[in-house]
């Protein structure tokens, strides 16, 4: 009995020590000073492509641009996309470009806290200094909104920010947006937004019980999106089986109209209305070219591979 108690005490102590270590474990860090001049137009385009505007604006309730988005209901709690206007108190008006770069690329707030991955920062990790400077310049043109967005409504244990450091260590994957040799210019041009900025995988990739994207389920679809939405597989073979072509897919991303004459609804409708319809035709075509010939291993072939916390269905 005594040995058991001792064991429990040791476990408790080491558990406490582990948590203490996690709490002080530094993550991210301010990047080298960026001294580039941003291009507002390009930055605004990138902000559109990245979903900043779609997610941080509550369109349905007529909210001001970037003043805070519609709540995102997840198994971990309700997330309220914050006010990211130039208001210094309730927005990001008192941030520096370095703060912004660290937040967007690393998911770390200016005070060093890890951000909840409801914010899709893992997809933005490969943004160049110029990308970040351009976006920052565009954000400077946003009118300040003096109301705060509601705080996240997340219960224990998910509200313990140190836990996010573990999450980062386990589930933060490289977005794989860099060009691949031997592939066409268009293919590489499409790979960048699909795997990065436009973060298709945020919805179309299955997640485990901890909300981490499963490496063997990339683009294989997700039936459990926030708000009861579902995202179908966008693996190349599945897209082709369902009749998608480069022409009709790029047109659908631009117009919302699908090959059958129907339109996207639900969350994909929002993606098109507040995001992809603003992209250039050549970018949309490149995305379609990549999606229909993606270098994502077909999920089903790998479905037997065990992965941490893999959901059973």
């Amino acid at each position: 009995m005594r040995r058991v108690l001792a064991g429990v005490a040791v476990l408790a102590l080491s558990g406490t020590a582990a948590i203490a270590a996690l709490v002080v474990w530094p993550i991210g860090g301010p990047p080298a000073e960026i001294e580039l001049t941003g291009d507002v137009q390009r930055g605004a385009y990138l902000a559109r492509a990245s979903g900043c505007i779609a997610c941080h604006t509550n369109f349905e309730d007529g909210g001001a641009p970037l003043a805070g988005g519609a709540p995102l209901e997840t198994p971990f709690g309700v997330f309220y996309p914050p006010n990211i206007t130039t208001d210094p108190e309730h927005g990001i008006g008192d941030w520096s470009l370095s703060d912004f770069a660290m937040t967007v690329r690393q998911g770390v707030s200016p005070d060093g806290e890890p951000l909840f991955p409801a914010f899709t920062y893992p997809f933005y990790a490969d943004f160049s200094d110029q990308d970040v400077a351009d976006m920052w310049a565009a954000f400077q043109t946003v009118a300040p909104v003096t109301n705060p967005a509601p705080p996240h409504d997340v219960g224990f244990p998910f509200n313990q920010r140190w836990g996010l450091k573990l999450w980062r260590a386990l589930f933060m994957h490289d977005p794989q947006t860099e060009p691949v040799e031997g592939k066409s210019v268009d293919w590489n041009r499409g790979r960048q937004p699909v795997r990065g900025a436009a973060h298709c995988g945020a919805c179309h990739t299955g997640r485990n019980l901890a909300g981490g994207r499963m490496p063997d389920a990339v683009f294989a679809g997700n039936d459990d999106l926030p708000g009861g939405n579902k995202a179908p597989s966008i693996l190349s073979d599945d897209l082709a089986d369902r009749g998608w072509t480069v022409a009709n897919l790029s047109y659908a991303l631009q117009s919302g109209v699908t090959p059958s004459g129907d339109v996207f609804g639900g969350s994909m409708g929002e993606v098109v209305q507040n995001g992809t319809r603003f992209l250039s035709k050549s970018d949309l075509k490149a995305m379609a070219i990549y999606l229909l010939d993606s270098d994502v291993p077909e999920g089903r072939a790998l479905a037997g591979t065990p992965s941490i916390g893999k959901t059973i269905d």
Binding site: Y45, T57, P65, Q273, L279, K281
Partner: peptide, 19 residues
Amino acid sequence: NTSAMMGGSDMMGANSMMG
């Protein structure tokens, strides 16, 4: 594309931004 998004010279020219 770009013009619809920008409206004016800034990112959020009220109508342009509202998607």
